[in-house]
């Protein structure tokens, strides 16, 4: 097995694992964390595919910006739920 294949297979396993966990986990906060993890792993995958510009966009927008906004949303949801609970 060549080295590149080993790297790519590892990356694929990690990608599928994080995607499946992000979709199935019950807690919103954990889901968002896993989505960010997925986005950053995806950026690594784009880097391996020889597309550094897409890797850049994926890391900055897909993981960073979306992740920060979703985290903020989770925080707001929790703050709203708190007084009633």
């Amino acid at each position: 097995m060549s080295a590149t294949l080993a790297f790519d297979l590892l990356l694929i396993v990690a990608l599928v694992w994080s995607a499946a966990r992000a979709l199935t986990v019950a807690d919103l906060f954990r889901g968002v964390v896993l989505l960010i993890v997925f986005g950053l792993l995806m950026a690594l995958a784009w880097a391996r595919l020889g597309a550094p510009d897409i890797a850049l966009a994926e890391a900055a927008i897909g993981a960073g910006l979306t992740g920060a906004l979703l985290l903020d949303a989770v925080g707001h949801l929790r703050a709203k739920r708190e007084p009633g609970a």
């Binding site: 960010i36 950026a43 850049l56 890391a59 993981a63 960073g64 920060a68 985290l71 929790r78 708190e82």
Partner: peptide, 25 residues
């Protein structure tokens, strides 16, 4: 790819701060 690494290091700070300050109430 060095530029992507730069963005990774930068984003670690941004998401970390968003995590700690906004989401974890």
């Amino acid at each position: 790819l060095l530029d992507t690494a730069l963005v990774f290091a930068l984003l670690a700070a941004i998401t970390g701060v968003a995590f700690a300050r906004r989401a974890w109430r």
